[in-house]
């Protein structure tokens, strides 16, 4: 059973400082730009892309560094297949 490390998200005042071995992958072609993920991302490592996808949205993208692997973005994202979170730095 995968349990989300909520304590880490909510209680660490400055999680970015820690060295995390995690990352997030976002399929920009499927993103509908609701921005809920950006809103909940504690380490603030997601941003809106300047480019448009085929649906006409500016998709969210990972800035490339600082993901804690907390998974909150995955759970608040309403789309089934946009976000993948790698808690450890594994290649899919």
């Amino acid at each position: 059973m995968s349990e989300l490390n909520l304590e880490m998200v909510n209680e660490d005042p400055n999680p970015v400082k820690k060295k995390h071995n995690a990352r997030v992958e976002i399929d920009g072609e499927l993103c509908k730009e609701c921005l809920l993920c950006i809103e909940v991302c504690a380490p603030d490592v997601l941003k809106v892309s300047e480019s448009l996808n085929k649906m006409g949205y500016h998709p969210v993208e990972y800035i490339g560094d600082g993901c804690t692997g907390c998974g909150v973005c995955f759970y608040v994202c309403p789309e089934p297949g946009v976000i993948r979170v790698f808690k450890k730095n594994k290649v899919a």
């Binding site: 399929d27 499927l30 509908k32 730009e33 609701c34 994202c77 309403p78 089934p80």
Partner: peptide
């Protein structure tokens, strides 16, 4: 043609609930 995204609007709660159920 888009068979990878849901039909739900951006930010719709259904998508999240579906994901939790699945």
């Amino acid at each position: 043609s888009n068979k990878l995204t849901s039909h739900y609007c951006p930010g719709c709660g259904h998508g999240v609930i579906h994901k939790l159920i699945a």
